[in-house]
Computed example of a mutant assay.
Amino acid sequence: MSAQPQTTYIHGSHESVLRSHKWRTVANSAAYLIPHLKPGLKVLDVGCGPGTISVDIASYVPGGHVTGLEYDPAIVEHARAHAAERGAADVAFVQGDAHALPFADSTFDVVHAHQVLQHIAEPVRALREMRRVARPGGVVAAREADWAAFTWFPDTPGLGEWHALAQRVNRAYGGEPHAGRRVKAWARAAGFDAARISCSAATWCFSTPEEREWWGGRMAERIATAGFTKGAVELGASAEDLERLSQAWRTWIQEEDGWFVLLHGEIICQV
């Protein structure tokens, strides 16, 4: 096997990042997967982060089992703590890399990844691994944002600059910010039959005062304190630039007509 590719999550593991990830559930982040979740299934959640989706999936597969895999061992501990708080005995979390999953062939009925492929060095390799550990008759599912399709109102000064810089940072770390439109192509390159790939799309929309405060506040914090900062500075951004972009988000939060939408591409691949 070739050398292990580098995996770098540009947003890091700052508390502002974890708070946004903890908001994610099956209903708001993986609704397209619900028809494929049945009692008794074994599920792998690749790149599970703090484990909220993994634990929620368990409620859809009573009598089954969910394994969450996360690259950062510190985040694995967050996920285990969340499962313990929820009393989820049928969920386990392990440290590992999506490029080389530490499981035997044909282990899981469902293999799922949410917002993972856009951040890793070799998304096709990861999908091959997801296919390998899925049993015949099972499914591989992935949902990825497409940054070029993000849209917002009003055109608050600084948000366009933030949007362009964030995409440059993602690519500098080897990621692909336009992953949503590529998931089908990546799946085909990974060996899935095009006739057995189902595609869909979904959005997150933040518009109420509470939603603007939550989303805009997380974005403002990420710019100022998360792992994103290092990449932005390496690309030439100054501390003053980052503070200005962070302030742009705080300004947007106060806009009564404020509206931000993220588009996601989704695939269900029959194995």
Rank of each mutant, 00 (worst) to 15 (best):
S2E: 12
Q4R: 13
T7P: 02
Y9L: 14
I10E: 02
G12A: 12
H14L: 09
S16I: 05
L18Y: 02
L18W: 01
R19C: 03
T25C: 08
A27P: 00
N28F: 04
N28H: 09
S29M: 03
A30R: 10
Y32R: 10
Y32Q: 12
I34Q: 15
I34R: 15
P39F: 10
G40L: 09
V46C: 06
G47M: 04
G47T: 08
T52P: 01
V55S: 06
V55F: 01
I57L: 13
I57A: 02
P62C: 14
G63Q: 12
G64A: 13
G68F: 03
Y71Q: 14
D72E: 15
I75P: 00
E77W: 00
H78M: 05
R80Y: 00
H82T: 06
E85K: 15
R86M: 11
G87D: 07
A92R: 14
A92G: 11
F93W: 09
V94E: 11
V94Y: 11
V94S: 10
V94C: 11
G96T: 12
H99N: 14
A104C: 03
S106P: 00
T107H: 08
F108T: 02
F108H: 04
D109W: 02
H112G: 02
Q118P: 00
V124G: 12
V124S: 13
R125Y: 00
L127K: 02
R135T: 12
R135G: 10
P136F: 06
A141M: 11
A141L: 03
R143G: 11
E144T: 08
D146R: 08
D146I: 04
A148T: 09
F150P: 00
T151I: 12
W152E: 06
F153A: 15
P154K: 13
D155C: 01
T156C: 06
L159W: 01
G160L: 05
E161T: 15
W162D: 07
Q167A: 15
V169H: 08
R171A: 14
G174K: 10
G175M: 05
G175T: 07
G175S: 09
P177V: 10
P177G: 12
H178S: 08
A179P: 00
A179R: 03
A179S: 14
A179V: 05
G180I: 03
W186H: 07
W186D: 08
A187H: 06
F192E: 05
F192V: 02
A195H: 05
R196H: 10
T203A: 14
T203Y: 12
W204V: 05
S207T: 12
R212M: 06
W214N: 11
W215V: 03
W215S: 04
G216N: 08
T225K: 09
A226C: 12
A226Q: 00
G227C: 06
G227S: 07
G231F: 02
L235I: 08
A237I: 04
S238V: 07
S238P: 04
A239N: 10
L242W: 07
E243P: 01
L245I: 08
S246C: 07
A248S: 14
W249D: 03
W249M: 10
Q254S: 14
E255T: 08
E255F: 02
E256D: 13
D257P: 01
V261W: 03
L262M: 14
G265Q: 06
G265C: 09
I267Q: 04
C269Q: 03
